[in-house]
Nucleic acid binder design. Structure first.
Ligand SMILES: [Mn+2]
Ligand SMILES: [Mn+2]
Ligand SMILES: [Zn+2]
Ligand SMILES: [Zn+2]
Lengths: 138, 138
DNA sequence: GCAATAAATGCACTTCCGTTGCACGGTTTA
DNA sequence: TAAACCGTGCAACGGAAGTGCATTTATTGC
């Protein structure tokens, strides 16, 4: 628990009780979580607090937002060496059509693509949809 | 106009007045359009009709839906040889951070990516964000 | 320790988009 | 022509994101 506090402080985010809980919750999940997921996990907490916590985490580089095509924003903890901002470092995400879960494939970077003249790339998002490892029967 | 009727009939969609207008509107735009865009263009028409028209067009392979990360569904006419269903044929989309417009880069296919064991790809979505040709000063 | 200040939280409310149910009217088919 | 079907319009709902403001909690200067 002390570790989480350290992690938050290192990112200049004050380690409040709620923030530590949310961080812990996300760390235990290996999949991307939606605001509603957290809301259901902590019936006690207010959605606005969770919402703003995620925004804060995102601004401070603790989590990154994931758009998996479900129109529900998901979030996942950044890996130790994660540089979401840098275009080179963008990894792809996988969304399972069966269990509806989204995972970061941190090792799989988005391949470089050539664009027509005049187009300048600043960011990229690649989502693969299909059947995940758990659902494909190992 | 007769051509549009033919096109719709070829896709087994009855060419009603409204459908022809919507098709024409989309054909004239070179960018992806949202339901609200069409709604604003045809103040007369009901939102539901436009919504269902787009759904019908999508089912019949006349348009394809685009998720550009804005959380607003966009649609664009399928090119003559478009096979949206086939995974191999998926092209990428570009969303301009400046003018907020989204375009199909039909010629640019989504590169094949390797997935970890157990993952089966069925669909893919690649969106590049940045500055479009118009906004980058040619 | 205490007052002043700033930050975090909670509640209420709004907006936006997508979606559905149902009723009406025109078109196709038997 | 009658029945069946399909397209359209109106109304309403639901989920999720986002905002304003009051309240509580933590931090800082004295
Ligand atoms: Mn990720
Ligand atoms: Mn396209
Ligand atoms: Zn799965
Ligand atoms: Zn632009």
């Amino acid at each position: 628990m002390k570790e989480i506090e350290k992690t938050l402080e290192n990112k200049s985010v004050r380690p409040t009780a709620m923030r530590i809980l949310i961080y812990k919750y996300m760390a235990e999940k290996e999949i991307a979580v939606a605001l509603t997921d957290i809301e259901n996990a902590f019936a006690k907490a207010d959605r606005t607090t969770l919402y703003r916590t995620l925004k804060t985490f995102e601004e401070k580089g603790i989590v990154h937002q994931i758009d998996d095509g479900t129109n529900i924003s998901k979030y996942a903890l950044c890996e130790p060496g994660c540089n979401c901002e840098i275009e080179q470092d963008l990894h792809l995400h996988f969304h399972c059509n069966n269990c509806d879960e989204t995972v970061c494939l941190t090792e799989h970077k988005i391949p470089q693509v050539n664009l027509p003249d005049g187009y300048v790339a600043e960011d990229a998002n690649l989502v693969i949809k299909g059947i995940c490892e758990k659902c494909s029967g190992q």
